[in-house]
Each structure stands twice: as C-alpha cells, then as structure tokens.
C-alpha cells in the first residue's frame, strides 16, 4: 500500500492543478496523460505478457474512428465509448487468435502488419471519409480553458482506470499467469496456465484502454485521418515510454510518458524541422543506454556500475 501513497499525492495535485495552468501547459499535460494511459495499456501485453505488440496503435485508430463515425451520425460522445471499446476488443480477439501464436520478431512484425493493413482499409473506406479523414462536432464549453479542462479530466479518468487495473494485475492470478508466459511459455503451460486464453485476454484489455484513449483523442482533436491515428510512430513512442520508465511495473509507464512527452514537446516547439531527428536519437540512446528503464536503474540506489553493466550485456 505504501508505494501507492506518492502516486496518490500526485493524483490529488493533478486534480487541483488545472485552474492554475495556462492553456498551453494544460494541453501538454493532457498529452502526457494520454500517452501515459496508452503506455499502461501496451504494458499489459508487451510488459507483463512479453508480447511486443508493435501495432498497438491500431486500437487507438479504431477507437478514434468508431467515435468519429458515430458522432457524425448523431450519437453523443459518451454513447460512442462502449461501441468503440467493443469494436477494438473484438478486433483484438479475432486478430489475436492467429497472430498471438507467433512469437518474438514474428509477432511484433505481424502486429505492425495488421496495423498498416487496417490503415490501408480505412484509407479506402467511404463511411470513414477514406484518405480525407473525418471531422467531429466541436465540444462546446464556457471558455477554451473549460474545454481543455474537460478533456484533461477525461484522459485523467482513463489513466486512473488503467493504473487501477495494473495494480489489480500485480496481485492477481491473471497477472502471475502473464508474467510466467513472458518468461517461458512451455513452462507456463506445464504450470496449468491456459496460455492462448491468457494472451488473448491480455491483448483485449490492452485494446480496451487504447481504444478508450483513441475515442477521447478524436473528440479532443476533432479531426482525424488514417495517417495520423494509425501512425506506427505512436506505437513506438509507447514502447520507448514503457522502456524509459520500466516494463511490467505499475508506474514505469507514467514516468516514461512524462520524460519522453515533455522532451518531444519542448523540442517540437523549438525545432519543428528536426523534431524527428531528435526523437530518433532519443529512441536509439534509450535502447542502448537504459535498456532496463529508469525505475530499475534507481531501485536500491543508483549505481554507475549497474548502468555500465546493463549496457555491456547487450554489446557485441
């Protein structure tokens, strides 16, 4: 329980903070919270179960599109959430049954292929506005700040839900099953774990949270197109955030999201033209220098020795 006290303090801070922030900072913080939630979601399948779902952004895109299409047909935002989640979960199960039989490289790339193939289908889908994308009704509010605050809290609720889920996972038989699968699938089978079922369930949960975020995102940004909401770079950012903070931990994804999203936002605002270069360098350096994440590096006191040792392990 003790380790959740500090995060709880941060949560309280996040709840009382909005009135004191400018629109700019509120927006940046909203972005951080959005990515933190998606990183918590990818952490379920990639962190705990060890299945590197490189195409996880596909659920973000599906969520965004279901909400956009339904809102364009007169549905209220909240009414679109259940269909959005159900669609993404069904998609994850249908795709997951064959694709989750693959391991390692093959799963990673297959999930990326699913993402790109889905994007291409949406690109040709009339009801989804094809390549031109879709515009959503604007959220009305007393002031721009009020609208910003509204979305800020929507994302914050999603984040809290995903964190609560992960805390539950840590102390639950399902979580133990996933961790066993990550290390050794045959060993997990021999321990009585129904691995195909567990993997599918893990991906479905991951899809659920990612789609929820996608729905909120679509309403927030109010314009979506396939190239943006199915962009593989979003998946990769989630991965890097998970790595930076520490995979298969409750709070690692949030720490990673804060670090990477703040850096990229600051770089983005100052050097738009070399944004990708900086992001690329950060990604490469993260993999080389802190392959086990910041949380690992600082557990039981920081030591240069461990830093160097972690790097050397992966060198040839």
């Amino acid at each position: 329980m003790k380790k959740h006290l500090i995060p709880l303090g941060f949560l309280v801070l996040l709840i009382i903070l909005p009135p004191f922030l400018t629109g700019y900072w509120l927006r940046i913080l909203t972005g951080v919270i959005m990515f933190a939630t998606m990183t918590e979601a990818i952490n379920i399948i990639a962190g705990y179960a060890g299945y590197p779902a490189f195409g996880n952004v596909v659920f973000f895109g599906i969520g965004a599109y279901v909400t956009a299409i339904l809102m364009n047909h007169g549905f209220g935002f909240y009414l679109t959430l259940i269909p959005s989640i159900v669609t993404a979960v069904l998609f994850s199960v249908i795709i997951g049954l064959p694709v989750l039989r693959l391991r390692g490289h093959y799963f990673a790339i297959a999930s990326l292929g699913v993402n790109v193939a889905t994007m291409e289908v949406v690109n040709n889908l009339k009801i989804a506005g094809a390549a031109e994308g879709l515009t959503l009704p604007l959220k009305k509010g007393a002031s721009p700040h009020a609208v910003y605050t509204y979305f800020y809290f929507l994302f914050l609720i999603a984040l809290v839900l995903s964190v609560l889920f992960t805390i539950w996972l840590e102390r639950n038989r399902f979580g133990f099953g996933l961790r066993a699968i990550r290390v050794d699938e045959d060993g997990a089978l021999a321990m009585g774990i129904n691995t195909p079922y567990y993997k599918t369930l893990a991906w479905a949960y991951s899809a659920m949270f990612t789609a929820l975020v996608g729905s909120i995102y679509a309403y927030w940004i109010s314009y979506i197109d396939p190239e943006t909401v199915f962009d593989p770079i979003i998946s990769v950012k989630m991965f890097v955030m998970m790595l930076l903070g520490g995979a298969s931990t409750v709070y690692g994804p949030i720490i990673g999201a804060v670090i990477l999203e703040l850096i990229t936002e600051l770089v983005w605002s100052k050097f738009v033209s070399i944004h990708g270069i900086v992001l690329g360098i950060i990604i490469i350096l993260t993999v080389i220098l802190i392959p086990k994440g910041f949380l690992d590096l600082f557990t039981g006191g920081f030591s240069w020795k461990r830093l160097v040792q972690n790097i050397k392990e992966n060198m040839i």
Binding site: F176, M191, G192, I193
Partner: peptide, 11 residues
Amino acid sequence: ENVMVGAFFGH
C-alpha cells in the same frame, strides 16, 4: 512468486 504460479493454477 515462482511457487505461487503453481499454487494459482494447479490442481
């Protein structure tokens, strides 16, 4: 935790 996996899922 290793042993718990067995207890969770076993007979």
